[in-house]
Simulated scan of single mutants.
Amino acid sequence: MKLLQALFFPPEQPGGVSSMIPFFQERFQKPNWEMEIFSLPRRIRNKGQEQIEFATFDWHLYEENATVQKYIQTIRDYLWWSKMRLNQTYDVIHAHHPIAGWVLKQLFPNTPVVMTIHSSYERELILNGKIEEGGVEHRFLTSLYRELEHHVDQILTVSNSFKQFLSTYMDHPERIIVIPNGYDERRFKPISHENEVPQLITVCRLVPAKGLDILLKACAELKARNLTYVLHIIGDGPIRPELEELAEKLGIYDETIFYGYMLHPEQFMPFSDIFVLPSRAEAFGSVFAEAALCWLALVGTDVGGIAEQIDDGVNGLLVPPDDPMALADALEKVMSDPTYRYQLSRAGWEKAKKSYSLSRVVNQLKKIYLQYKRKPSV
């Protein structure tokens, strides 16, 4: 069976799709399976010129909006690049971005297209202060869900909470299949250790949606309680200067290390003790599973896919979003009790191994792909 895994940009960033798809290659072995990974190079800009029309809504109602114009041009570029590069047939195409799913179904109308919706671009834009809920951009982007439902053969998503979110915008949400992301355990090398000073770590893109302002305020509260720690922040993004300024203003700059982007944060995480990320929304939150596989105790917010990964008090702690005091209380509880921290981290590791193994994901996907396998013509 010949598969095409269609991404958006190349899998360079940690987390999510990049933590999973490149590691599929050896799991889909010849002679029974053949897999190709396809994506749009970041340098491709403003190449496509084709007219774009959707079957379920008229996007021209929104065409004066700059965000919509950019999105449509990206569709054109993906279409242009796909026509240039994809010149063979496939048994199944698995798309991992709405643009990829829509474009490839246009180009391969007779090929089954499975579409995984990994996250909500419009929710990210709202939380990052780029667009307004209910505004032009929001209405356009949410209209694409029904458009995808109309075209592709099967829609998957990564958590039950995100399936519920999508149900608002689709006619048949009961057809959505939930398959959480999976991870190759061989990438993670947990290290048994006990740091004298608790080491906190977070890994994410530095944008408002990740709630790092709340984390810094919680850490300032920890310092006010005379608790010692070091906070490691791995990742980069547009609000890094604001976060560094906030850390200085709160008097915790000496306790906080900003590393910037790191290609393989899983090689660094095992030396820390507690993974913390107070996101304001997460469809899944891949980095929590990765941190669990590194033997870290987990502290996260009670939102989206995070709440499906963490059983509060069993394999991590959950706090409300936008609540620095609650976050400080949770961190203090884990920091001050090494035995409890050990119990949480080992329970997190066991759940991640059982629920988010790459083998489990691959086996589930193989069953779906085989449902669409073409029968040989007589």
Rank of each mutant, 00 (worst) to 15 (best):
Q13C: 05
A247Q: 03
L250G: 02
I44R: 00
V152M: 06
T228Q: 15
L125Q: 12
D311V: 13
N226E: 15
T301Q: 00
P22M: 10
F23H: 12
W102I: 03
G16L: 12
K353A: 04
Y71R: 06
R240V: 13
L86T: 12
L358T: 05
E242S: 13
C219T: 07
A292G: 12
Q199A: 14
V158T: 08
Y62M: 03
D77Q: 09
P265R: 06
H60A: 10
W81L: 03
S355T: 00
S192H: 14
S159L: 10
F28C: 05
P109K: 14
N160K: 12
I234T: 00
F165I: 06
S19I: 01
L4D: 06
F258P: 01
A352T: 07
V17K: 06
A292R: 01
L216K: 04
C294M: 08
M20E: 14
V207Q: 01
D91N: 13
E196K: 12
V299R: 06
D91V: 06
D323C: 07
E244M: 13
L358G: 08
S336I: 12
V136H: 02
I274S: 00
V378N: 09
K354N: 11
R123N: 13
V276D: 06
V92N: 02
L365H: 01
G211D: 06
V152F: 04
Y90W: 14
A218G: 03
N195V: 11
L327H: 06
E133M: 12
Q5E: 15
G211E: 02
T202P: 00
L293W: 09
F57W: 08
P241R: 05
C294I: 10
E282T: 08
D91H: 10
Q5P: 04
L358R: 04
Q364G: 01
D322Y: 11
E244G: 04
L370C: 08
L141Y: 08
L104Y: 01
S357L: 05
K2N: 12
P278K: 03
N195R: 12
I306N: 07
L277S: 11
G16D: 00
Q5T: 08
G134L: 11
D329T: 09
E245W: 02
N315Y: 05
N128M: 07
I274C: 03
K210M: 10
K375Y: 13
I93N: 07
I131V: 15
E50M: 06
I239E: 04
K249D: 15
V319Y: 09
F57C: 10
E26L: 10
Q5F: 15
N195K: 11
I75P: 05
L296D: 01
E133P: 10
E53T: 14
F57E: 04
L318R: 09
W349D: 00
G48W: 01
N87Y: 06
R360W: 00
L296F: 09
L200Y: 03
V303G: 00
R374K: 15
L127F: 04
E53Y: 09
M1G: 10
S377N: 11
V92L: 02
L156R: 05
A352S: 05
